[in-house]
Design a protein around this nucleic acid. Structure first.
Lengths: 192, 192
DNA sequence: TGTTGCAATGCAATTTGTTGCATAGTAAGA
DNA sequence: TCTTACTATGCAACAAATTGCATTGCAACA
């Protein structure tokens, strides 16, 4: 399973509680994986059982107690072993794309709202990436360390995907207006 | 569930047997979804039960019998209803990216073989897309129908993603050689 | 004639992932 | 004070997906 390893990496980058991991994985900025808190707690329990991680309870005077997990040497070597295993190609899955294929047999204008939403969400994601990029990887005096370069490289793929999405959304919106003009759009065109 | 609808669309585009669907979904050319045959047979059975699709057994004289499914009017309207439902943003999931994040704490050179494999597979996929593009969407006298334009637009996103992947793989390979030169690469450089 | 491989369909067991709910404390505001 | 919202953890039930196996029939090849 990959969630195990995704969590291990995240914990390697920064020891955290399940709650923190859940928030990071929910936003999924630069993580390339996603999970809900229920799943995360389950996997953390399993990995602690297996000795890949260990926890320390941080008593919060004001906040609730937090169970902070850190990767053990055993976890580290499990990870090291895992990266040498062959990894299958990751298939893009997109519900929106299925809807577009379906809309080819129906009215594509029905998808304009969804398209606008996706465009907005990808825009937000890209902005978040850009902010992170500026904060962590540029404007420093020193050149980036090899570790940072790699982390940056992963982020770059995320950025490239968001840009691809955004360009596609814009193109597609224009296409729909061209092939299936809405009455109001037609009216606007005619009265202008 | 989306697999139901992905199969419905696929059957709308072309009535097929479970086996055919499995092959198409396995190659995942322009499909944006994926499933194994076991899962597909299960979902087909469920959808036939629900009246969304109906089957006709084609006796093969030489080949084995095929159970060919086609979408019913009920299935069609289920699809029409589904496309108006809000669709959550699709999160990119990539095992390879997790491995890169892990490799930042280990030796990134370990990922060079996996990187080359991914590069090759995305290259193959892109070539398949391009071949399909040429066959179905260009070189025709007539301009594309609105339906074709939409199908082409979906394919374009697939193409864009493959191109993004390929460019990233190439960049990353160069990066790894730069930050963690292999002994042989260094030797090559020094002797050249 | 046996073996390998492919087309075609499916069951069963297991693992992953989702949905719904529960609990408990803090903090802020109506 | 009551309600709302957020931090923090988790269980249980269910749905979806994967893995492993099984069967039948044909075709090609040694």
């Amino acid at each position: 399973m990959s969630l195990d390893h995704a969590l291990l990496v995240s914990l390697l980058e920064k020891p955290s509680s399940g709650y923190e991991l859940a928030r990071r994985f929910d936003k999924s900025i630069g993580h390339f994986w996603h999970a809900t808190h229920q799943q995360i707690y389950k996997v953390l329990a399993r990995m602690e059982e297996a000795g890949w991680i260990e926890s320390e309870v941080h008593r919060g005077e004001t906040a609730p107690d937090r169970k902070v997990f850190a990767v053990t040497p055993a976890g580290r070597s499990a990870l090291a072993e895992w990266i040498t295993e062959p990894s299958p190609i990751d298939r893009a899955r997109s519900e929106l794309m299925i809807k577009f294929r379906a809309a080819a047999f129906d009215d594509p204008r029905k998808l304009l709202p969804a398209l606008a939403e996706h465009r907005a969400e990808h825009g937000t994601l890209l902005a978040a990436y850009r902010a992170n990029e500026a904060k962590e990887f540029s404007g420093h005096d020193r050149p980036l360390s090899p570790q940072q370069e790699l982390q940056y490289q992963v982020m770059k793929l995320g950025i490239a995907f968001e840009e691809t999405w955004i360009a596609w959304c814009d193109e597609t919106q224009a296409l729909i207006h061209r092939i299936a003009p809405t009455p109001s759009a037609t009216a606007t065109k005619e009265t202008s």
